[in-house]
């Protein structure tokens, strides 16, 4: 057993090296499947968070995030290095969320919403924090096309350029949607101002 194996044997936490995403992807394509784990570790929390706030629910977060990463795993070999890996990843995430929201809307039409027992939410800090919950509920009332750019900008801190690439639209559209999203959110939150002030 050499020293490297022993380190693994002792379950050393992996030290995050400065290797960038492109280098890790290259390793993966060259056959080192463990490189995929690095990508997941690096980006999973951001992906999970985008899903969480877009869906306004914690119940499906891990299922959707898993689908996103499986999609990435299957298609990584076709990755062209012409854009950031994250742009591609977030595009998949955003599209997957849209699919789910669409499915949920269809379901709403066909069945009454009494399926709380099927999708049990586990407690999240949001439930303990009123302001956070109120704002999240308000965000969920925005149309998807306004909701996603606003989340990417104000919660995830993306630039307009990155949002435009993730959503495959023009920068001008992003700018306009973010403004409209904020305006709409202000209208939704206005009647709740008292609760938000404490």
């Amino acid at each position: 057993m050499d020293s490297k194996e022993i380190e693994n044997d002792l379950q050393q936490p992996q030290i995050l090296t400065l290797e960038d995403d492109f280098a890790v992807i290259k390793r993966f394509i060259d056959g080192d499947k463990s490189a995929f784990k690095i990508l997941v570790k690096r980006h999973k929390e951001k992906v999970r968070n985008i899903i969480y706030i877009t869906m306004n629910s914690s119940a499906l977060v891990d299922d959707i995030a898993q689908e996103v990463f499986i999609n990435v795993y299957k298609n990584l070999k076709h990755f062209r290095y012409d854009s950031q890996f994250t742009t591609w990843l977030y595009r998949i995430t955003v599209n997957r969320c849209k699919d789910y929201l669409r499915k949920m809307n269809v379901r709403k039409i066909f069945s009454p919403l009494d399926e709380g027992s099927q999708v049990t939410e586990f407690p999240t800090p949001v439930e303990e924090n009123d302001v956070s919950k109120i704002v999240m509920d308000a965000i969920s009332q925005l149309p998807v096309k306004l909701r996603i750019p606003l989340i990417l900008k104000d919660i995830e801190g993306f630039s307009y350029q990155e949002i435009a690439e993730s959503m495959k639209c023009e920068m001008g559209t992003v700018k306009s949607r973010i403004f409209r999203g904020r305006e709409r959110l202000k209208e939704i939150l206005e009647p709740l101002e008292k609760e938000l002030m404490h």
């Binding site: 999970r48 968070n49 924090n129 606003l150």
Partner: peptide
């Protein structure tokens, strides 16, 4: 409005993901 959006809490980490 931007400040309020900033108050949204993130989801807890999932150690088993």
């Amino acid at each position: 409005v931007k400040e309020l959006i900033n108050k949204v809490k993130t989801i807890p980490e999932s150690p088993y993901f």
